[in-house]
Write a protein that binds this DNA or RNA. Structure first.
Lengths: 221, 221
DNA sequence: AACAGTATTACGGTTTTCCGTAAGGCAACG
DNA sequence: CGTTGCCTTACGGAAAACCGTAATACTGTT
């Protein structure tokens, strides 16, 4: 099991929850920070002093306040940590459940586990810690399909067009009529429904509104 | 373009950001102050010396500290500046996005531009500076509807909450249940429908998807 | 040409949204 | 005290979205 662990989480209560979980798991040295920059500095310091951390458990979103930060988000922190200290284990613990975001963390930043904050968040986090301690990886069930359907997670121009027309207020019926007029295929209402359904699954969206909100945030449209 | 500009902003980093923006725009003389009183004194001094400022970019909220101030807020400073030096251009740059506050600044104090600090704040500020240099006015998109319609199209916190929950993928039914649980009124499905209908009309949206897309573009959520 | 695999379309049923109408609650006002 | 106007809620029907299933069309391969 890990000996020295750092928790980066701005909400105090959650921070404490994770702390007591780690204590139960027998972790002797636990440090806690509420800012991304502090997290990086602590890891850096510990490394220089040859008493490095074994594991960092980090949130993704930190509320901004008066203190300006070099690393404005958990993503930025994780990216920097993994690039500077490749052997350091990193578990991301966040409410974020967008599959795209999770994929990026694993593929680009090579994190070791992703746990969704939820009713069973701490339970999953326990699993994750145990798994990572054995050099394994862990993925919360909420986002387990981030990689399961590796087949088509690419978005083509047709998808973008669909989402764009949706965001402009056209109904699926109207989009179908438009595509028929402009000889864009597929144009049937059924195909449009099917495609949107695929996109909803890909982006973990509850409905079309949610889907459009997500892809707008991602800057896809 | 302007030659001599004063920045009144208590947060140092933002102050610096605006400074470098002005430098890029070719402004040669830039003064920076962190207190409202200093801003007024500098403008007064420059006017007496016949080397007046062309433009003041001011925040609205200044954190209070040990130094007691004659002008406790950006509003007070702006009011005094515009009344003493009517030809001086004033751009307000603030996080404040309450429409009433913005209206007051334009109507009562005759400011030249209002820019909201946001993700695209500096971009908007650039636009504003260019517009004001040409004797024009500028209004950030976030508060663009402060004057768009004279009828009551005020958007309140409830509306924002509604739109926010919609964009998170909740159905109207789920929002109703949530509001009932949290004692937020009105909570009935019917009222939620009605309110959303009002918002759709206000923003000229065809449906809920369109509505959420529009308010996201406006930066309301 | 026959085949398999995939993409497109069609269709039916359920849920959700959209929209008009109307009833009930509540406060201001004469 | 009743009236008026506004806000909230309830209800019902039409439209649209959602979801599974199945038939048809198209692709490339042998």
């Amino acid at each position: 099991m890990f000996k020295k662990v750092l928790i980066a989480e701005d909400m105090e209560d959650i921070n404490k929850g994770v702390f007591s979980l780690l204590t139960e798991l027998g972790v002797s040295q636990i440090d806690q920070v509420q800012y991304c920059d502090d997290a990086y500095l602590k890891v850096k310091r510990a490394d220089l002093d040859s008493v490095p951390f074994d594991l960092v458990i980090s949130d993704l979103s930190f509320k901004v306040d008066h203190r300006s930060q070099t690393y404005p988000s958990g993503q930025a922190l994780v990216a920097k940590l993994k690039s500077d200290f490749p052997s350091l284990k990193v578990i991301v613990y966040s409410v974020e459940d967008r599959l795209q975001a999770v994929r990026t963390l694993f593929n680009q930043h090579d994190i070791d586990a992703y746990v969704c904050k939820s009713r069973t968040g701490l339970k999953n986090l326990t699993q994750a810690i145990c798994e990572v301690a054995k050099d394994g990886k862990f993925l919360s069930p909420e986002v387990s399909n981030a990689f399961s359907a590796e087949n088509e997670l690419e978005i083509d121009d047709y998808d973008i067009s669909l989402l764009d027309n949706l965001s402009k207020g056209l109904s699926q019926d109207e989009i179908s009529a438009l595509y028929k007029k402009e000889n864009i295929s597929p144009a049937s209402l059924s195909s449009i429904e099917k495609r949107l359904n695929k996109l909803r699954i890909q982006f973990n969206a509850n409905n079309a509104i949610h889907l459009v909100a997500i892809v707008k945030d991602l800057g896809l449209i």
